[in-house]
Simulated assay, not measured.
Amino acid sequence: MGRLTGGDPSLLRRINSAVVLHALRTAAPSAAPTLTDLVKLTGLSRPTVEGVIEGLMESGLVMEASAEEGAARRQGRPARRFRFRVEAGHLLGIEIGPHRVAALLADLRGRVMGSASLEVSETASADERLERVREAVADLLRRSGVACGSLRAVGVASPGIVEADGTVRLGTALPEWTGLRLGERLRRSFRCPVLVENDANAAAVAEHWKGAATDSDDVVFVLAGLSPGAGSLIGGRLHRGFGGAAGEIGALHLLGREATPEEVLSTTGEPLHPLDEAQVARVFTLAREGDARARAAVERFMRRLVHDVAALVLALDPELVVVGGWAAGLDGVLEPLRAELARYCLRPPRVAQSLLGEAAVATGALRLALDHVEEQLFAVESTVTARR
């Protein structure tokens, strides 16, 4: 599209269309608005609203509501009512992790319609892992009766430092992931925009949308695991950093050449091998049963996690820290974190456990797709006031 100026009639049409569409999209499904309602809601003239509605119906985004979708029927000819077609397109949120891939399908309001997940080997190649993604998505679309061509945006969340174009600049958690043009590879499978984000960043977005951080705009989400990562919201906006590497707290121990995670969690004096979730869970179980070496290992793990989180809290001063990831389900994570943050931080934040659990990353990816579609549909409304 060419450059638009303030006096350009095409800009005015876009503004008016965005205003009317927003009013329809936010209306309760049981109270589809009439033309008169839309005039009151938008402040636009009736001829303008009529023209916009006609264009939106031609585009497939709006349709006339049935009698059941409107208010109670009165005597005489009923007023025409209209609704936003949430089924006019669909969104996908995809999580790519070490042990599984998962996908969520939603309508244009972000309402989840279905989900799918498949296990994947920790040692799977990049090609094998991406094939599992395609299998999960194909299964989900087939079961939901949705054509791939109906997708308007796909959000993808993955471990690693992700650049703006969807390239994984550094990804140590998955084989063959560093340097992978993840966005480019997945765009071959979808005929719509594909947005790629770091998994902890996506989870932070999810918790702010419908999790433990819905009432907070300054949030740190900790994806607690063997090498923890974090995502941060500042003023309600995701903070990615200059190159997408903000929140990589798992690398902090390298600054002081401290013990590796394998050494931190060892109960034998030798590095823990293999270093995986099952082994770590076993260490935590032994600690609960009173094993002295396991308890010492858990204390080292907690101290490392607390120090990593405290560094980020001191830098960002968040209102809330949300802890998620597999380690968040282990006993005794939250209380030591609260106590130590109170000790180290000038203004200790609230600490809460994730409400979304293992769905947080895929939910955040879905929100990224929804944000992209909303920006396309409504961006002009936030920058220019609607005019009659």
Rank of each mutant, 00 (worst) to 15 (best):
D8S: 08
P9L: 02
L11Y: 10
R14K: 13
R14V: 04
A18D: 03
V19N: 08
V19G: 04
R25K: 14
A28T: 13
P29I: 09
T34E: 11
D37Q: 14
K40N: 08
T48Y: 13
E58D: 04
E58N: 04
M63H: 13
E64N: 03
R80H: 04
G89Y: 15
L92D: 14
L92W: 07
G93T: 08
G97E: 10
P98W: 15
H99R: 06
A106T: 13
L108H: 03
R109C: 01
E119V: 02
T123V: 11
L130K: 01
L130N: 06
R132Q: 07
R134K: 02
L141S: 02
C148D: 10
R152C: 05
V154C: 07
G155C: 00
V156H: 05
P159A: 05
V162W: 05
A164E: 05
T167L: 06
T167Q: 06
R181M: 14
R181C: 14
R181W: 03
S189W: 14
S189V: 06
R191S: 15
R191L: 12
A202P: 03
A203W: 04
V205L: 05
E207S: 00
A213M: 06
V219Y: 07
V219W: 11
L226C: 07
G236V: 01
H239I: 10
G247Q: 00
L254K: 09
L254S: 00
L254P: 00
T260L: 11
P261V: 00
V264T: 08
V264M: 08
S266C: 05
S266P: 01
P274D: 01
G290A: 03
A296R: 14
V298E: 02
R300S: 01
F301G: 07
M302L: 09
R303M: 13
R303V: 05
V313W: 00
L316T: 12
P318F: 12
E319P: 02
L320P: 11
L320G: 07
V323A: 04
A328Q: 02
A342M: 12
L346G: 10
A352F: 12
A352L: 12
L356P: 12
L356R: 09
A360S: 12
T363K: 01
G364D: 15
L370R: 01
L370M: 08
H372M: 06
Q376N: 09
A379N: 08
V380P: 14
T385N: 06
T385I: 15
R387N: 10
R387H: 14
R388A: 15
